[in-house]
Design a protein around this nucleic acid. Structure first.
Lengths: 216, 216
DNA sequence: CATTGTGAACAGTTTCACAGCC
DNA sequence: GGCTGTGAAACTGTTCACAATG
């Protein structure tokens, strides 16, 4: 099967595989089976094979998967075989934490510009980045060729910020505000609502249930 | 249909409905149809009705749904018709941002205890909360009757922290570390890996695609 | 001969279409 | 008339089982 349009569920798991392959590579492991991968991530071997087969013919029957090769192919499929510049809008508590978050750089995500509405913050620097007015989103994002953004502003302001980002040419938005964004449909958005994740837990805890997960 | 075991996909959307109903209530709207709700959240009317019907018989044919009544019922179904105390472990940049995050309190989530491994932080207070050593998780969580926790520590430390929380009686864990947690299966975990969400965007942006979403 | 890739069976989720109700 | 609740149909995603293979 050739990659043309992977289901969302699959692409989420591809990230998971890459994470696990990184860990294996660090430990010097060179080969891994669908069984071992599945074990580590709480997935069935069959699902692992289906997922990986949907990206390409990446395994070696009787042997398993070459860790380095597989990781490289998956990164290529996900588009993370290169660095991505990110624009961050909203440098409050959450935004500041995102700037300092180590995990992004490790996965090739580089916050390259930061914006905030508050004039008191304009011109200040955080981790070497100068905070700019949101009015400059268009100019800066265009000049730097930035295509991904994160929104960490209050819910009321999120749609306005999204509009500016889209107008500036951003193609993917990770949104931490607790509202859905309305954007052109050639722009991807993913909303991470922290309270929603807690509500999942309260539901399952309330109706005393089984089943831990891995995955989002 | 009576609530006994709602599918995960449904419970995620219940949170979405509650969010939208709150907004409608603020605007003084008292009645809403499945069509309007679906419109606002990017869902089909049929799906909205199926979801709501799976919680109970909540609508009025020919009229729609009473906003206040529906919100109350959904909150009851999710277990968020009361406040929940949360233990936070890891008071680094992300942890601090979570403590200050306004959205949690609005949804009834109250961070009631904070822990960190770093002795330099012990005894300091953030937003009125004293940071305690992780060794005290058992005592404090037990005494306060805390059943939910958030983990915002480095990946290497996450499993150890999870073990302490589970031993202390925590039943649901929201995990921000980029590793899956291995816990007893009467304990719920939900892992939010920020880089994974960006990887979803890079995938769709790389293979220039359509379709914004709402939802996680 | 252990292990992949995959068609076929199965499970879960979404959409359709319409009877029943306000 | 407008709108819900729901069984049946369509679709999507997961698991099984086995032929193919280095």
């Amino acid at each position: 099967m050739r990659t043309s349009e992977l289901p969302r569920a699959v692409t989420y798991r591809l990230s998971l595989y890459v994470r696990q392959l990184n860990a294996l590579a660090r430990d010097g492991v060179t080969t891994v089976s669908s069984n071992e991968l599945g074990q580590a991530l709480g997935l069935t071997p069959a699902q692992v094979r289906k997922d990986l087969a949907s990206v390409g013919q990446l395994g070696f029957p009787g042997v398993g998967y070459r860790v380095a090769l597989l990781a490289a192919e998956l990164r290529r499929a996900l588009g993370t075989d290169r660095d991505w510049k990110i624009a961050l809008v909203g440098v409050g508590h959450l935004g500041s934490a995102l700037i300092r978050h180590k995990g992004f750089r490790e996965q090739g995500f580089v916050i390259a510009a930061t914006f905030d509405k508050d004039p008191a913050l304009h011109g200040r620097t955080v981790e070497g980045l100068t905070i700019r007015p949101v009015e400059e989103i268009g100019a800066v994002v265009g000049r730097e060729g930035i295509r991904l953004a994160m929104i960490a502003v209050p819910a009321e302001a999120a749609q306005d910020v999204a509009d500016r980002l889209v107008a500036a040419g951003v193609k993917g938005i990770l949104n931490f505000a607790a509202v859905g964004l309305d954007v052109r449909d050639d722009v991807q958005t993913s909303t991470v609502d922290l309270s929603m994740h807690l509500e999942q837990l309260t539901y399952h805890v309330t109706s005393l249930k089984r089943g831990g997960d891995h995955g989002p």
